[in-house]
């Protein structure tokens, strides 16, 4: 398994919408490299025929009836929002100004 570079960390931070500072990038690059090399041992443990466990307890077909439940009060919800307008959540421009 490869080591992780500062550029990769920057790319991952962007994917995760984290505007990390240069200092954070430096720290994280070193720390993540240590962490990833520590967990690298995992690569050789399990054979191909081992099925992955995604759920600790095996259940299937947990479904609910198509019955209406309670919705929230809009005013309560919008009051907790950073910005609202006309019964809707107000969010900043989706595209940059120059786009």
């Amino acid at each position: 398994m490869s080591t992780i570079t500062r550029d990769e960390v920057a790319h991952l931070a962007h994917l995760a919408r984290l505007a990390v500072t240069d200092d954070e990038l430096d720290t994280f690059a070193v720390q993540l490299d240590v962490i990833l090399s520590s967990v690298a041992s995992i690569a050789d443990v399990a054979a191909d025929d081992i099925l992955p466990t995604t759920h600790a307890v095996p259940l299937t077909n947990v479904l609910r009836a198509d019955e209406p439940g309670t919705s929230l009060n809009r005013d309560t919800v919008l009051l907790a929002a950073p910005a609202a307008e006309g019964g809707r959540f107000r969010v900043p421009r989706i595209l940059d100004a120059q786009e």
Partner: peptide, 22 residues
Amino acid sequence: MAGTRDAGFGAEVKRRIIIGTY
């Protein structure tokens, strides 16, 4: 979004988010 998440999350949370994203 990215500015808020950087300011709002602490270092360990950011580390784990980045590891998980990777």
